[in-house]
Amino acid sequence: MLKIENMTGGYGEVDILKGIDLTLEAGEILTVAGTNGAGKSTLAKAVVGLLPRVGGRVLLSGEDITKVPAERRARTGIGYVPQTANVFSSLTIVENLEVVEGVKDRKARMAEMFDLFPALAGRRRSRAGSLSGGERQQLAFARALMTKPPVIVLDEPTAALSPIMADESFSRIKALAGTGTAVLLIEQRARQALEISHRGAIMDGGKVALEGEARTLLADERAAELYLGVGH
Rank of each mutant, 00 (worst) to 15 (best):
K207I: 07
A166W: 02
F170D: 04
P163C: 02
R199A: 06
P149Q: 04
S90Y: 03
G122Y: 06
H198W: 05
T147Q: 09
L176T: 02
V208C: 01
E95F: 02
A175F: 09
K174P: 06
P149N: 07
V153F: 14
I186L: 11
A190G: 07
S126I: 07
P118E: 02
T179R: 15
A144V: 00
E98P: 13
G180D: 00
E95K: 00
D167H: 07
E168H: 15
S197C: 10
A209T: 09
S130P: 04
T158V: 10
K148Y: 09
G133S: 01
V183G: 15
Q188D: 06
A159K: 12
L184D: 11
V94M: 15
D105C: 01
V208A: 07
A119V: 05
L161V: 03
R106K: 13
A144P: 07
R136Y: 04
F117C: 05
Q188H: 09
A160Q: 12
I93C: 07
L131G: 02
A160D: 11
V183W: 14
E95A: 01
P149D: 02
F114G: 09
R127E: 06
Q188A: 08
G178M: 03
S171M: 14
K148W: 14
A177Y: 04
A209I: 10
I173L: 09
I152K: 11
P163Q: 05
T147S: 09
A175R: 14
Q137E: 01
A193P: 10
F114W: 12
L161W: 05
P157N: 02
P118C: 07
G178C: 03
G206I: 11
F114R: 01
A142R: 09
A108M: 12
V151F: 08
P149W: 13
M110I: 00
I164E: 08
A119L: 12
E187Q: 13
L120Q: 01
E101D: 15
M113G: 03
Q137P: 06
A175C: 06
A166Q: 03
D115L: 10
G178T: 02
K207T: 15
L184A: 00
R172N: 14
I196C: 12
A108Q: 10
L184Y: 06
A142I: 01
T181C: 13
R106A: 02
L91H: 02
A121R: 08
E101N: 15
V99D: 04
R125L: 01
S169V: 13
L97K: 14
H198M: 13
G129I: 03
E187L: 10
M165Q: 15
K207Q: 04
T92V: 00
P118M: 05
S169K: 14
S197I: 00
L145Q: 14
D204V: 15
G102T: 01
R189Q: 10
A177C: 05
M113C: 00
S197L: 00
G134K: 13
N96Q: 07
R125W: 08
V208M: 08
R123T: 04
I202S: 15
A201G: 04
L139K: 08
V151P: 05
A142P: 11
L131K: 10
M165T: 11
S162Q: 03
M110P: 09
I202H: 11
A111G: 06
A128K: 08
A142S: 09
G206P: 09
S169Y: 04
A142K: 11
S90H: 11
E156N: 01
A119W: 05
M203R: 12
